[in-house]
Design a protein around this nucleic acid. Sequence first.
RNA 1: GCCUACGUAGCUCAGUCGGUAGAGCAUUUGCAUGGUAAGCAAAAGGUCACCAGUUCGAUUCUGGUCGUAGGCUCCA
Length: 639
Amino acid sequence: MSNLIKIKLPDSSIKEAPSGSTLYDITGLIGKGLQKAALAAELDGVLTDLATTVTKDSDLSIITFDSEKGRDIFWHSASHLMAQAVKRLYPDAKFAIGPSIESGFYYDIDMKKTLTPEDLEAIEAEMAKIVEEKLDVKREEMPKADAIKYFSSINETYKIELLSDLPDGNVSLYRQGEFADLCRGPHVRNTEQLKSFKLLSIAGAYWRGDEKNRMLQRIYGVAFPDQKDLKKHLDFIEEVKKRDHRKIGRDLDLFSTHEDVGAGLIYWHPKGARLRNTLEEWWKKEHFKNGYEILYSPHIGRSTLWETSGHLGFYKDNMYSPMEIDGNDYIIKPMNCPFHIKIYQTSLHSYRDLPLRWAELGTVYRYEKSGVLHGLLRVRGFTQDDAHIFCTPEQIEDEIKEVLRFSLWMWKTLGFTDIKAYLATKPEKSVGEPERWITAQESLRKAIESADLKVELDEGGGAFYGPKIDLKVRDAIGREWQMTTIQFDFNLPERFDMYYIGEDGQKHRPFMVHRALLGSIERFVGILIEHYSGKFPAWLSPVQVILINVSEEQAGVVNEMKNTMIDRGLRPQVDLRNESMGYKIREAVSQRAPYVCVIGKNEAENGTVSVRKRGEKDSITMAINDFYKMLEEEIAEKR
RNA sequence: GCCUACGUAGCUCAGUCGGUAGAGCAUUUGCAUGGUAAGCAAAAGGUCACCAGUUCGAUUCUGGUCGUAGGCUCCA
């Protein structure tokens, strides 16, 4: 008889099991359901497979799909499953890396055949077979040299390259049936656990992400323990497609791009321009309220300016070639900052003038590789909601706090509430005095603290010229977008030799902070479209009300209503077309206007409107003035 | 930039194994004058992205250019 050992679970309860039991056996003691759901375990804090045997008293925590670690393991196992299927179908396939990712997994493969979407179905079918075969997934450990020998024997050149980067000693392989892969693990117990999966797409990817290396074929996929969850995930992908700002932008006639004129350049149509204008007017008003001044600066500047600023050195790849004017080179601006500094330098500044908060909706042009352009989200010409703050060291802390508070308030008003901060600190190579870095980083840290934000620290991840805070906001369907940046700059004040006169009558270097709250107007509108799925709150909606007449006789009343609304600063749109009412309502609803108003004989006679609120099927009849009041209230409250 | 796929009417997409093309919606016109998600009919609409090459003939095949989409170290 073997001895009993004590296994302590996360809730501090203790299970006794015979020494030498596997973790899988032990999960069975806790519950059948858990045993089925278990993927791996943490034994005394170490991630391990369920096949591991225990011979001494230990702490145990079971990993299931509900945790991030669990999903990671599950998806990584699914990528092995896929690789096995690929190898069966294409024996010449060589495997590079196949990790789990944020939602799913991929494997990079080198093989002769170029995969098509139909091939994915065949691979899926083969994967299903392997699941049916219920292969045990077994860990094998061996010296690195043996592993190299093994992978040489099956011609897995990428694995050999990976192995050569690993420290000497033992490495682990995971084997399922005829297939074995180099892997740290852990993995699921048996292929039967990987029932619900879907291969999503094929893409090219460089070996080790380096464009000098060979391009491999990458297959993306996703997997779940349950068919229902897979369905949910696929529905989510559909939902993302439906919200695509490029599609909604066309359907709602907001913007376009023109391939014959240039990629990554946005044309704002009347309705898109209204939306943008509403945002910008609001943005300016709030900036004035928050102690900013608004600037306008030129679109081009002489190359000497960009030499002074240093951009021609470290930012050259993103800048367009110069144009010659009167024998001088001019460059279209990729940034607004040097211009703001030029304005700063038009007069001598006392410490009493500071802080200066100078904002500009400045349109900049940056070269982006053609492959990364994407609708409004990644473009070559865009308008930053930029500002620069020039202040004394004493003012830094309050200034940063204030910027952060302002930014968070703005996000809340725009309908985004889930926000996370990322603090990036001094990298190895940097400019600026160390004390300045410390002061700046301290102010950023304190601002985050006082705003009570979730924060992630990126130690050493700052730009060479200063530390920064980025804010990521989560949209309505859970995607994170990096938006706000608050960035110190110790470089430009030096390069332009900026100073102010202190209390002591001496010259002092001001602190300079760049900040963009929305990031770029183009990109932000793109995200806004997807966040609201085109159903903008009334205060932003380019068309707030669509007015529909039942028959020609009401055309006069409808036009009158429209004029009154325009006078009141509202944004109505009339549809007097000689079409059936049903038809016009259908179209108005698909245009996602917050309200559709129908005026027929009854309404015209009684001074009422039949109001149909977006998302509701039934309409309400109310007095015209009551409707105006209701709408105006909704707009004022930015609901 | 690189890989893969794609580019046909304003939009969504068929189609042509090489003989200059079709549907639905949208548009225009006519009829119908309506009560809360598509009334009926007709017409018009295309250099089949662009430029070369092969061919008697190219939207189709080949090459190039431009553009679009999904990707391109989340490191066994």
